[in-house]
């Protein structure tokens, strides 16, 4: 196996040259308090947790830094369903800057206080908000989602937490109909460059209902993505369809040492023709 492990300078060079993206994603868990219509992983309250341990997540962060990656991302499922997640995120941010994706609907009481502890220069929370119209937003994301998000965001910002907003759309990314949403996001105190607008990718539950853009491997940014089921090509890789994990973008079942999947990603990237990820805006 040792001859398949990339030396750290190889990965670092690939990141420096742009051959590999700098961010490593981790799926902390697959279960979620919501069941969004376009969810890539069919996450819901009934989903299996398939959770990474805190030790694994911290080891990924440390080894990612040593290999030459430059940033981390945590997604799910809903990461804040894991009680120890904020402490683990703080520990991971000791290695590399971190963005933590959340639906933003759990931030009341103790959970809000735990989230507020993530006021850290190298941590950003990324919260989903898809429309300035509560009914439209909630149709895809669930009842009261809009109200909970617009309530939580200013409160988090007031406590010093950096918040990014991610908007997932089925239409054009530059649709003028998004302008009122952009204004709403700005009014919540979110910086313009912290508002991310991206397409629905037709994988997972979105594929079952025919939503979003079709994407093959070369269309998906080749960010190394770590889950309890293995390492994948891109954060859109470990999708679930009809309860079954998609394996087409599986790199390795081995996740640690991180050099093993990193080497597999690099090898796969070098065998892949140039993609259209920039044009499709998948991120």
């Amino acid at each position: 196996m040792t001859d398949t492990i990339a030396p750290s300078d190889t990965v670092a060079d690939a990141v420096r040259s742009g051959e590999l993206p700098g961010r490593v994603w981790l799926y902390s868990n697959y279960n979620c308090n919501l069941a969004c219509s376009y969810c890539l992983t069919e996450s819901s309250p009934r989903s299996e947790r398939r959770q990474l341990s805190a030790e694994q997540m911290i080891a990924v962060a440390e080894q990612a830094k040593n290999l030459g990656f430059t940033a981390l991302g945590i997604t799910g499922g809903e990461p804040f369903l894991i009680p120890w997640l904020p402490e683990t995120a703080l520990a991971m941010a000791e290695s590399l800057p971190l963005v933590l994706l959340t639906n933003g609907t759990l931030f009341t009481g103790d959970r809000f206080e735990r989230a507020a502890r993530l006021a850290h220069p190298d941590i950003a929370l990324q919260i989903s908000l898809d429309s300035h119209l509560p009914d439209v937003n909630d149709m895809a994301r669930g009842p009261d989602n809009f109200a909970k998000v617009v309530q939580a965001v200013p409160l988090l910002i007031a406590r010093g937490v950096r918040v990014r907003i991610a908007t997932t759309v089925s239409g054009a990314l530059d649709d003028p109909l998004l302008d009122p949403l952009k204004q709403l996001v700005a009014s919540l105190g979110v910086r313009e460059d912290d508002h991310l607008i991206r397409p629905i990718v037709r994988r997972g539950r979105a594929d079952e209902v025919g939503l979003g853009i079709r994407a093959v491997a070369r269309d998906i940014p080749n960010e190394l993505t770590i889950t309890a089921d293995g390492a994948f090509w891109g954060s859109f890789g470990p999708t679930v369809r009809s309860g079954r994990l998609d394996t087409d973008l599986l790199l390795t079942r081995t996740i640690l040492p991180l050099a093993v999947p990193a080497a597999a990603l690099l090898a796969a990237s070098r065998g892949m023709p140039a993609g259209t990820d920039a044009r499709l805006g998948i991120r």
């Binding site: 090509w233 998609d246 394996t247 087409d248 599986l250 790199l251």
Partner: peptide, 12 residues
């Protein structure tokens, strides 16, 4: 076990 076919064969 699932026997993977060309559609779900891992990228590597």
């Amino acid at each position: 076990v699932d026997l993977l076919d060309s559609e779900c064969a891992p990228i590597t």
